[in-house]
Simulated scan of single mutants.
Amino acid sequence: MKKPIIFQNIPCTLVTGFLGAGKTTVINQLLTTKSTDERWALLINEFGRIGIDGALLASTEDSNLEQQKIAIREVNGGCICCTSQLPLQIAISRLLSEHNPQRLLIEPTGLAHPRELINQLGAPHWQTALKMQAVIAVLSGRQWQQENYRNQDGFQAHVRDADALVINRYDQLHESDKQALVEWIIKLNSQVTIIWAPSEQATSDVKNAYLLALNDQLSNSSQIISKQRKINIAPPKKSVIGLQPRIGAISTSPLSAPQTDSKEHQINTDTDQPYRYHEKQQDILLAGWRLPAHYVLKADDLHNWLLKLPNWLRIKGVVNTADGWLQINFTPDSLTTSTASAQIDSRIEIILQLDETDNTAKEDTTIEYMPELSATSIDWDTCDQELMAMVV
């Protein structure tokens, strides 16, 4: 009988941040600091059921994760910071046993409360297996500028529960605003290390200095988690800010192939069949589509169609278009589209705000919304037909 592998002191870094803060970008930057002979593993948690972040991390043209000794495991369809620790334990145990990494990075969903994950990682059964390094939180300067973000407990929580804070998208902030941001951060967490992410126009020296500062956090022990281990309090019951635990039915639907008659289909998760789901969770609506790789969509039409969805909070995707494979990463303050390597299928996932009266998150942005529509009034069959109509 084979003896179980006992893992000890594997460096582990938690990368947190509010929805749309830019966690995936920071993880990609951390990956560039990896030595070629090291084995790293990534645990990515997405609240949606399809899973896109793994593709966003691995979809550069020259990316080959196996050759780079990087293993990715995605946990989709809920938050790993739930009242039961089982999903997190299983995911970490499998990553360690199957890939024997020398370093583990964990990216929880932006809808999660970091304190609950810190509670779990501070539990006694992880104290010998994992060596918890600095908790890195990501903060968007553009989000912080909006009062409804910075006054929200869920937004503040990522600052309070961080050893290091990476600030990005601050190019529109005046010096006085940046000073006010620093003062706001210090009030929440006077011990946090602040790292300013450089813009794309920054010099190579500035970018290299940033990567060195970021890489330093991989070898700094987490004071936040160390304190939590000493306190040894039980994790709170709720797992997601403003959301209840996942209960109730999920609505899933296969899509009709282009230029075919509408027929009743069985739900099919095969990558050769189109698929859509949508699910209501208190004040948000999650929805996603998966399309076979040979479905080629009109890029401009898709872009415009996504932006017309009502009250959206986040749009992510990796899609085969007439302009090639594209990554889509939209937040209310940032629209990013870039080239991607070919995938086994196209994926789109969206998060919509169901509270029609709360439009404050859309103030002072350059993106056009459609307040006359609401997420609750969406006709999903019509959405499916519109999406299929974009297939070339």
Results as ranks from 00 to 15, higher is better:
207 K>S: 05
252 T>Q: 10
1 M>V: 10
113 H>R: 14
86 L>V: 12
302 L>W: 03
387 L>K: 01
314 R>F: 07
217 Q>F: 07
374 S>T: 15
1 M>F: 08
344 I>R: 03
65 L>S: 12
172 Q>S: 11
130 L>Y: 06
65 L>V: 12
287 A>W: 07
252 T>E: 13
209 A>L: 04
261 D>C: 10
283 D>Q: 15
153 D>Y: 12
74 E>Y: 04
169 R>W: 09
130 L>Q: 00
292 P>G: 00
168 N>C: 13
83 T>K: 05
206 V>F: 06
90 I>V: 15
37 D>Y: 08
243 L>V: 02
82 C>D: 02
224 I>V: 13
283 D>T: 12
387 L>W: 02
150 R>W: 13
27 I>G: 05
146 Q>P: 02
205 D>T: 11
141 G>I: 05
295 Y>M: 01
121 L>I: 08
388 M>I: 03
282 Q>A: 09
274 P>E: 00
177 D>L: 08
205 D>R: 09
51 G>H: 00
368 E>C: 15
171 D>P: 02
96 L>H: 01
181 L>C: 12
208 N>W: 07
118 I>W: 01
65 L>C: 04
237 K>Q: 14
149 Y>D: 08
155 F>P: 00
141 G>H: 10
109 T>F: 04
111 L>K: 04
392 V>I: 15
380 W>S: 01
344 I>M: 05
369 Y>K: 08
217 Q>K: 08
100 N>L: 13
328 I>K: 02
74 E>M: 11
179 Q>K: 13
96 L>P: 05
112 A>Q: 01
157 A>N: 14
287 A>F: 06
201 Q>G: 04
177 D>P: 01
338 S>R: 07
344 I>C: 07
315 I>Q: 05
47 F>V: 03
211 L>A: 08
246 R>Y: 04
292 P>E: 00
108 P>N: 09
127 Q>A: 08
329 N>F: 00
297 L>Y: 05
268 N>L: 03
55 A>F: 05
59 S>N: 10
358 D>N: 11
175 E>P: 10
224 I>Y: 05
334 S>M: 06
48 G>P: 07
49 R>G: 01
85 Q>E: 13
236 P>R: 04
61 E>M: 14
390 M>L: 11
352 L>R: 05
166 V>R: 02
321 T>M: 09
27 I>C: 02
146 Q>H: 15
19 L>P: 04
124 P>F: 04
114 P>W: 03
221 S>L: 08
6 I>D: 07
254 P>E: 04
174 H>S: 15
237 K>Y: 15
135 V>Q: 04
178 K>R: 09
148 N>G: 09
383 C>L: 14
183 E>A: 12
221 S>I: 00
253 S>W: 10
335 L>R: 10
48 G>A: 05
236 P>N: 09
359 N>R: 14
168 N>M: 12
351 I>L: 03
123 A>T: 01
282 Q>W: 08
194 I>E: 04
165 L>H: 03
249 A>Q: 13
377 S>G: 06
174 H>F: 15
370 M>R: 13
